[in-house]
Design a binder for these strands. Sequence first.
DNA 1: GCCGTTTTCGGCCCGACTGTTTTCAGTCG
Length: 580
Amino acid sequence: MEKEKLIHLLNRIGEMLEILGENPFKSRSYYNGARIIEGITEDLKKITEEKRWNEYKGIGEGLAQKISEYIETGQIGYYDELHEKVPDEILEMLNIPGLGPKKISVLVKELEITSIRRLERACRENKLVGIKGFGEKTQENILKGIEYLKKTSDRHLFAVGLANAERLIDYLKKEKSVEKIEVAGSIRRRKETVKDIDILVQTREPGKVSKLFIEYPEVTEVIAHGPTKSSIRLKDGLNADLRVIKKDEFPFALHYFTGSKEHNIAMRSRSKDFGLKLNEYGLFTGNEEKIQCKSEEEIFRKLKLSYIPPELRENFGELDAAEKNKIPVLIEENDLKGIVHVHSTYSDGLNTIEEMAEQCLSLGYSYIVFCDHSKAAFYANGLNEERVLKQFEEIDKLNKKFKEKKFKIFKGIESDILPDGRLDFEDEFLDKFDLVVGSVHSSFKLSEEEMTARAIKAINNPFLTVLGHPTGRLLLSRDAYKINLESVIEAAGKQNVLIEINSNPHRLDLDWRYCRLAKDNGVKLMICPDAHATKGIADVKYGIGIARKGWLTEKDVMNTLPINEFEKFLKEHKKERLKK
DNA sequence: GCCGTTTTCGGCCCGACTGTTTTCAGTCG
C-alpha cells in the first residue's frame, strides 16, 4: 500500500536524522508525521490535491511539501539525499537493544562499522573496548542484543503478550505483600501487537517482589534490576518490566505507563496549560505542591476531562472528546449475545456443529451462526450445494433439541469472493442462508483498483450480509492485500452491508483505525471469532478490544442483539437489501 | 520540523537505569 511506504519513508528520515546527529526534535517531527498519516483514513491524494495538509496539527510546511511530493511522484528527494549518507544496513543497527543513534554514529566514524554483520565481528575481535564511551560491558550487551535480534522479532501478537502478562501476574501474586498489581502499556491499551509487558506493583516489600520477579521460571535474561524498576527477557522472546510504585503515586504511574507516549505528551502539555506539571509521580502545581488523586478518573477530572478508557489513549482525538464530554460508552465483552462466523467439521473446523453450539451455550450466548467455507475454497474442504443442504438438515434437527434451552443455530456460509467479485453460489442458493459472509481467500496479488472493485462488486450483491476480514492481513506475517478501504467502507455504507471485525488474534481485521470511519459511514459491524474449534470462540474478546479501540458502542455491533431481535434483524436486513 | 490569545524565536515531557565515567551521556519507555 502506498500509504505504508510513505509512513516507512518518514520514519526512516527520522532515524537517519538521528544518526546524523541532527536536532532530535526534527526527527521527532518526522516520526510524529508518520503517526499522523497512520491515523488518517481519508484519501491522501485528495488531501494533497485540495491542499488541506494544514488542517492536520503536527504537519507543517516542510512535511506537507514532502508528503505531497511523495503522493505526486512516489518518492521523496530529501529521503534519497539522506539515504546516500546513511544506508539501510546502518539503520538496521538501531534494532539492536541498547544501541542508539549516538553510539552507532561513533562506531561508523571510529571503526567504519556499517552493518550488523561487521558489528558482530568487531565485538568478537574485542575492537569496541577502548573507544570513548564504550567498555567491555557495552560490547557484551551489543553481542547479546544481536543474538536476541536473530532469535526474535521485536513485536508479538497481543494474545501472546496478554497470556504472558496474566501468567506473570498470577506468579507475582503469590507474594503476600503485593497490595495491587496491574498490567499497563500497550497490553492495557489493547494494541493488536505489543512489544513488551509493563507490570506495576504496589507493595510494602519492594525488594522481595523484585527478587521474585527476576527469579520467574520463564526468565532467560535479567536486563536491569534497580530499586524501582526491573527488566527481564522471557522465553517467549518478549521483555517484561516491573515497576514498584508507592501507594499515593499508583494512579499517576498507571496512567503514565499505560501511555501511549503520544497521549502522555498531550496530557502533559494540557497540564502545562493549567500551570500544572504531570509525571509518573503525580500532578504538581507551580510550587511543586502535589494535587492528590485517588484514581485515573480523578487525574482526568483535575484536567477538566472526562474519563478516557485506556483503549482510546492514542492521541487520536480523545482529549478533545473528553473535554466536550463526548467519550462514548464503549462496547463490553458481555454485550455480545451471539457468536457469528464459526466453522465446523463440515469444512475445516475441528469440532462438530453440536460441540460448537454446546460451547456457545455454556459460555452464555444464545445463538450461533455457522459459516463454513464454500465450494471455491477446496483447500479448506469447502461445501458444495449438496453438502450445505445436508448441514441444514443437521442444524434443523439440533435446533429442535436446543429450543427448550432458548438457544438457536443459524444457517450461514463464508462464501468466497471470486477474483471478479462474484460470490461462489448462485443467488437463488444464497437466498437459503440466514446470513452470508463474503471473504477473499485467493488472488491476493490483484492491483489496488482490481481488489477494491472486487470487494465492491461483492458488496453490491444483495445476498451479502457481512464483508469478512476486509484486508486479509495476518499480523506479523502477511501484509494486507492492496485495497482502498475508504471506498470499500463507503460502498458498504451505501449498500447497508456489515463489516466483520475478525477476532482471530492473527487477523484483528477490520483494523481499529478504520472502525470510526465505518461508523461515520453508517456501517454496522459484527464481531466474529472465525473459530475453527471450540477453543477459538473465546477469541471474540480480542475483537471487543479492537472495537473499543475503534470507539464503538454496543449499538454499532449487531451481534449484541438478543436472539429475537437478531433474528428479526436478519430477515429485515435481507428484505431491505433486495428492495434496493 | 512544528508551533504560538505572552511568542515568528526559542522552546519542544521527563525520569530510571546502565555503563563509563569522577559528574555524565546514552538509551529506553
